[in-house]
Design a protein around this nucleic acid. Structure first.
Length: 850
RNA sequence: GGGCCUAUAGCUCAGUUGGCUAGAGCGCCGCCCUUACAAGGCGGAUGUCGGGGGUUCGAGUCCCUCUGGGCCCA
């Protein structure tokens, strides 16, 4: 075996262990996936990678969906694209604040001064320690940095081909600059505006909440039947689940068709306990079947109240404050002494307590009829909150998103059509959402940790803010914090002083920053040359539940700022389902952490499982698939080692035998199928065709030609097989490279230079040696070999058992193919005597064992 | 209440514009220590394609309807 030194780097016994750290480190160290900044737009493939919420926990879902993106990135890179594949960390917003509170046992108290010697408690204290806003933000930054390392470690172990030179944080300076600049542009163009309006309000977080952040939850409640007094002294009975809102009642409403109440429309009634005179109005939204068919309108109990309040131009009688408690002063519209006395009993109370008090009062006066009737109803919650939302009137900032203008809305719907969705049907979710919008995008949040609205307001001579007198910073001064910096033309001593200024205390919604990820990653306005090389981007990968938020808001910002789509394609990942359809939970002890998974099965194996999940399709968490992936990875190692040990070559001109030509034709077909599948973002299909070819290659073809490569048919025949083996191995490694990046890189390093991930994706014309031949010259022969194996198995013989005679009846063409390959066939089947007969009938085989 | 997805072997899933006898892997059963791999190989069994109706020469695939599961929204 003089030639065995041809591939000296092939190990004796290849193993999977250690490939992740070996190649993962190598890729990072060598900048293997560095983006070429000089690349022209048409050669770039840019990816708007989702910034994971670092304060959340690592989940197998991360592994799943981020792998999908990486498959596309690696394919595009091998196809010759300059791939821009950055990543950001979402460390902005409520999840981070909440995690810091729990982790350190602190809470933000904006009135406190910054303590530069502050040291965070090592153990969270039982009672939350109040700290200044700046100290709080510092803790947020400290904790998220640690979280980010954990994610980075996971993603590198998983083999994501991210360019680590382009990481960003949604709270970092660049993100703040971009968010503030984009907001100021929106403001200048009239797309951002402030308004005093009823706002959905979370009393726990004390912040306004946007439509996209709402969810309905079924909650128990009770209908209370309460008597109002008509002008003629008779009673009319309403039913309400929120009797505590009685003091804020501004009208009664019934359906215009409801005969029971027709005579009341246009008249007034008197509220119980508080003796306020309110009108009775008619509106089609009232369901005559619900309750007594007549309801009280309060400011505000729910969103329908807001509609009625607006349409009937009713007064605002705010009752609930920002803390969720009843206001601390007797409202001006409650005038009688008895009513004032009653109101004193609920001042400052939570709505729950106020309800108990008023129900008891109503019982005493007899205005509550019967016992409350328990019901279950849908109540609006902030998706991250624990208490039902209240509606309070506040001044907030909005960005136009088509929620109030048909023209913009239809343009945004057109953007949805322009975007290529993978899978296509996900577009419907976008359309449903946009069509169902009922207001503009509320972007101001009353939080501490986030990107501040870059605004100040002038104070009048009395020291009251004049919100129409907005002071904006110069773009060059961004990012700014209006709470700690004074606007130009003022100095800090004028803060909160008459004729001075105040800073806007609010921060922007986390989506107001996330909606700019293409601009942040692409250094918009900071390096516009760079930006225009990568924008519009090629792909936004994400999951389906945030189409209404992240995807839509990004489309809005890009449409407003660039008058274009932010990306050409979006691919929507499905969810991970538990195999037993039960939620994984810590209490059950069956939580699988992704890092352990990668260690147990190997990253390539876990990626294989992920790759089996098609875009948009929910996939079961299935360690069985990972075992198969692991087996595939091991098989690639062994089969490649074997091919190389047979002195495989890449000499196309050596291929002379029909079975070898046919193998390459078959392979070329696989390449074409895999390529077109990848072009359609159907990576699973690409993997499947490569995999099934690979197994038939090792099981059938390699077995068939093994003896020939040893030289039993002479050097020329051996060379033909060695070239076919080499070309096939070479091509298969590339086809598997996006899926199984570690093992393919390992094998590549045995006999080739550089990284396989920077090689060109195979093309069918580079592979074929005799394209007109087709593939049947091989498949017809391996089918016969399979028949021989079957007979041996049926007779409980070993595969190398001798066949006394093999007789074949087949068409002229098949017989010719068998004749061409008969030496391979005889050697592989250990056949002593081969008889060939031409027939018109189907191929028939008779095997006689020794 | 509206929208979307989904139902195929014990399990996880393919099945393209309707077209030969509906496939794969796992699992199961049987066999083989074969000098790449026993963490391997070879072979086998397994289906009322959720139910009902319709279109068609022909339906897992298209239409209607019912039922179960999931998601989004109201």
């Amino acid at each position: 075996m003089a030639e065995s030194a041809r591939y000296p780097r092939v190990p004796e016994k290849p193993v999977l262990d250690g490939v992740e750290s070996k190649w993962g480190n190598s890729w990072v160290k060598n900048n293997t996936f560095a983006f070429d900044k000089t690349a022209t737009k048409d050669s770039v493939y840019s990816i708007d990678t989702p910034p994971p919420t670092v304060s959340g926990s690592l989940h197998v879902g991360h592994v799943f969906s981020y792998t999908h993106t990486d498959l596309i990135a690696r394919y595009q890179r091998m196809s010759g694209k300059k791939v821009f594949y950055p990543i950001g960390w979402d460390d902005n917003g409520l999840p981070t604040e909440r995690r810091v509170q729990n982790y350190f046992g602190v809470r933000c108290e904006p009135s406190l001064a910054y303590d530069k010697n502050f040291v965070a408690p090592t153990e969270p204290s039982e009672k939350q320690l109040p700290i200044s806003r700046k100290n709080f933000v510092e803790l947020c930054e400290k904790l998220t940095q640690e979280d980010e390392k954990v994610f980075e470690n996971l993603f590198q172990t998983l083999g994501l081909s991210i360019d680590w030179n382009y990481t960003y944080q949604t709270i970092d300076k660049r993100a703040r600059t971009v968010s503030q600049k984009a907001f100021l542009r929106n403001l200048k163009r009239g797309e951002a505006y402030q308004a005093e309006a009823p706002t959905l309000w979370d009393i726990t977080f004390r912040t306004a909440v946007a439509q996209a952040e709402l969810e309905d939850r079924e909650r128990p409640g009770a209908f209370h039947k309460i008597a109002f007094k008509k002008q003629n002294g008779e009673q009319v009975f309403i039913e309400t689940t929120r009797p505590e809102l009685l003091p804020s009642c501004v009208a009664l409403v019934a359906n215009p068709e409801d005969a029971r109440y027709k005579e009341l429309f246009g008249k007034t009634v008197i509220t119980p306990l508080f003796e306020v005179e309110v009108p009775v109005v008619a509106h089609h939204l009232v369901d005559p079947e619900k309750g007594s068919g007549i309801a009280m309108i309060c400011t505000f109990g729910d969103l329908t109240d807001v509609i009625w309040w607006r349409e009937f131009d009713l007064p605002t009688r705010g009752l609930i404050g920002w803390d969720g408690r009843i206001v601390s002063e007797n409202p001006e519209w409650i005038t009688s002494n008895k009513a004032k006395e009653t109101f004193q009993k609920i001042i400052g109370k939570t709505s729950h307590t106020a309800r108990e008090v008023l129900v008891s009062e109503l019982k005493t006066t007899g205005e509550l009829v019967g016992e409350p009737k328990p019901i279950t109803h849908a109540v609006k919650f902030f998706e991250k909150g624990d208490k039902p939302l209240e509606i309070v009137t506040t001044r907030q900032w909005y960005i136009r998103n088509g929620g109030r203008e048909q023209e913009l809305r239809s343009k945004l719907l057109d953007r949805g059509v322009e975007l290529k969705w993978h899978p296509e049907y996900m577009k419907v979710r976008y359309e449903n959402w946009v069509e169902g919008l009922n207001g503009d995008w509320l972007i101001s949040r009353q939080r501490f940790f986030g990107v501040p609205l870059p605004l100040w307001y002038k104070l009048d001579a009395n020291g009251n803010p004049d919100y129409s007198q907005i002071i904006t910073p110069a773009e060059s001064a961004l990012p700014i914090d209006p709470q700690s910096e004074a606007p130009s033309g003022f100095d800090e001593s004028q803060r909160n002083k008459p004729n001075g200024f105040i800073g806007d205390p609010d921060v922007m919604d986390t989506w107001a920053t996330s909606s700019l990820t293409p601009q942040i990653a692409g250094s918009w306005e900071l390096d516009n040359d760079f930006f225009h090389r990568i924008f519009p981007m090629d792909l936004r990968p994400q999951s389906h539940e945030i189409i209404r938020t992240w995807l839509f808001s990004t489309v809005v910002r890009s449409h407003l700022e660039e008058n274009s789509l932010p990306w050409k394609n979006t691919s929507i990942s499905g969810w991970i389902l538990d195999p037993d359809r039960k939620k994984m939970s810590k209490s059950k002890g069956n939580v699988v952490t992704p890092i352990d998974l990668l260690e147990e099965y190997g990253s390539d194996a876990v990626r294989y499982w992920a790759a089996m999940g098609r875009p948009g399709t929910d996939t079961a968490f299935d360690t069985g698939q990972m075992k198969i992936g692991r087996r595939l990875a091991i098989k690639i190692l062994n089969a490649s080692k074997f091919s190389l040990s047979l002195n495989a070559t890449l000499n196309k001109s050596d291929v002379s035998q029909d079975v070898d030509h046919a193998l390459l034709n078959n392979l070329a077909q696989v390449v074409e199928t895999a390529t077109s599948a990848f072009e359609k973002y159907e990576y699973t299909r690409a993997l499947e065709v490569a995999e099934s070819f690979f197994w038939s290659f090792t099981d059938d073809y390699v077995e068939l030609v093994k003896e020939r490569t040893y030289g039993n048919q002479g050097e020329e025949a051996a060379k033909s097989a060695r070239a076919a083996l080499g070309i096939t191995t070479h091509t298969l490694l590339k086809l598997f490279a996006p899926f199984i990046p570690f093992v393919t890189e390992e094998v590549w390093s045995w006999w080739q230079e550089g990284s396989i991930h920077l090689q060109s994706w195979p093309k069918s014309f580079e592979i074929t040696t005799k394209p007109d031949l087709g593939a049947s010259a091989l498949t017809n022969v391996t089918a016969i070999l399979a028949d021989v194996r079957k007979v041996k198995t049926e007779n409980k013989q070993s595969m190398k058992a001798e066949v006394k005679s093999l007789e074949i009846w087949a068409s002229k063409e098949v017989i010719a193919q068998v004749e061409n390959a008969q030496k391979d066939l005889i050697a592989a089947g250990n056949i002593k005597d081969l008889k060939l007969n031409i027939t018109q009938d189907e191929t028939k085989v008779k095997v006689e064992l020794a």
